[in-house]
Simulated scan of single mutants.
Amino acid sequence: MPGSRRFLERAVHSGGGSLELASGCSPAWPQVGCVLIADAVPLFRDGLARLAEASCSGVRVIQSGSIGDIWRLAAQDRLPDLFLVDLGLLGLELGFELARLRKCYRSASIIAMAHDADAATITAAMRSGCNGFIHKGLPREQCAWAIGRVLAGFCVVEHSEADPADSRQIQIDNKSALTARQSAVLGLLAEGASNKAIARELGISHLTVRLHVSSLLRIFAVNRRTEVAPKARILGMLTPA
């Protein structure tokens, strides 16, 4: 299909590395032990389950159809590696539930999915701790590629070309949420500077840098300093690399 060809070209051009697509096949994901799929529609859950099984050998898939099931099933497994969560399942408590999920499962990847999310909703999901967002109307190969990129450590927002929620609109509403010093530290982190180099550049102590980095980890709901800059770019707080 012409649309699929356009996607394949874009995926390879974007630097997918080992996750690049060959025509007619899904990309391999980094190895994961367990995926929890939370969606109210059994047919959609089954489709994602088959996609996971085709993309990652030996993966165990858990399916959930309600908010309560997410917590019950996740607790039984102890530590799912990946959550695929339909935002419609979370209702008005979207931000609270995602933040709670991130707090309880800090090392897991969390991807929000929806058919009709606008830019504000996607931003809220990313700010609440999601590693990515995927539009549910995208082709199978594009979904597989995006999930693989998240599992490889990237923040990814993949939406329909017709969706008005353009990535340029997915921003934190109030950029003044960062102090001037936090913004300076963020900029240096984006350049790959070490804490020692940041301290030297800004004329502050190493301990102060560590405190600012810890604050940025909390603000962007990530676990590692290397994840701060990619998340900030997704949210429009840094210019693209």
Results as ranks from 00 to 15, higher is better:
Lys196Gln: 15
Ala180Cys: 08
Ala49Asn: 05
Leu211Asp: 14
Lys175Thr: 11
Arg225Gly: 08
Ala229Asn: 07
Val85Trp: 01
Leu21Tyr: 14
His206Trp: 15
Asp69Met: 10
Glu9Cys: 13
Arg100Ala: 07
Met1Asn: 02
Pro230Ser: 00
His212Met: 11
Leu48Gly: 04
Gly137Met: 00
Leu189Pro: 00
Gln171Trp: 14
Val59Thr: 11
Gly3Leu: 08
Gln171Pro: 02
Val209Met: 08
Ser167Asp: 10
Arg225Leu: 10
Pro27Trp: 04
Leu19Ser: 04
Leu51Cys: 02
Ala11Val: 07
Tyr105Glu: 06
Leu207Tyr: 15
Gly16Ala: 10
Gly95Asn: 10
Gly68Ala: 04
Ser160Leu: 06
Ala180Arg: 12
Cys143Phe: 07
Ser4Glu: 15
Cys104Trp: 08
Ala184Pro: 03
Ala146Lys: 05
Leu36Met: 08
Leu48Pro: 01
Arg149Tyr: 12
Lys175Pro: 01
Ala144Lys: 01
Gly153Tyr: 12
Ala28Asn: 11
Gly17Phe: 13
His13Tyr: 14
Ile198Val: 09
Ala232Ser: 03
Leu48Ile: 07
Gly95Ala: 15
Ala193Asp: 13
Arg100Val: 02
Gly47Tyr: 10
Ala28Cys: 15
Leu216Gln: 11
Leu217Asp: 07
Thr226Gln: 11
Leu36Arg: 01
Ala180Asp: 09
Leu202His: 05
Gly132Ala: 02
Val150Asn: 06
Ala177Lys: 14
Val41Asn: 14
Arg127Thr: 11
Ala49Val: 09
Trp71Ser: 01
Cys25Ile: 14
Val228Asn: 03
Gly88Leu: 08
Lys231Tyr: 06
Ala120Gly: 03
Glu158Phe: 07
Gly192His: 01
Arg102Thr: 04
Leu90His: 00
Ile219Leu: 12
Ser66Ile: 13
Asp77Ala: 15
Leu138Thr: 06
Gln169Asp: 08
Asp86Gln: 09
Ser194Ile: 06
Asp173Gly: 14
Leu151Thr: 02
Asn174Gly: 07
Asn131Met: 03
Gly132Met: 00
Ala125Asn: 01
Glu97Tyr: 03
Ala190Val: 09
Gln142Gly: 09
Ile62Arg: 08
Val228Leu: 04
Leu19Ile: 13
Ser194Ala: 13
Phe220Lys: 02
Asn131Cys: 08
Asp166Cys: 06
Ala197Lys: 15
Trp29Arg: 05
Gly16Ile: 02
Arg149Asn: 14
Ala54Trp: 01
Ile37Tyr: 04
Phe154His: 12
Asp81Cys: 07
Thr239Glu: 08
Ala241Asn: 04
Val61Ser: 04
Leu36His: 00
Asp166Gln: 04
Leu89Val: 03
Ser26Trp: 14
Val228Thr: 05
Ser205Tyr: 09
Asn223Cys: 11
Glu161Ala: 15
Val222Thr: 09
Ala117Arg: 01
Leu98Arg: 00
Gly132Arg: 02
Ala40Val: 13
Cys104Ser: 11
Gly88Trp: 03
Leu207Asn: 14
Asp118Trp: 00
Pro42Ser: 10
Ala152Gln: 05
Ser14Ala: 12
Gly3Lys: 12
Lys231Ala: 06
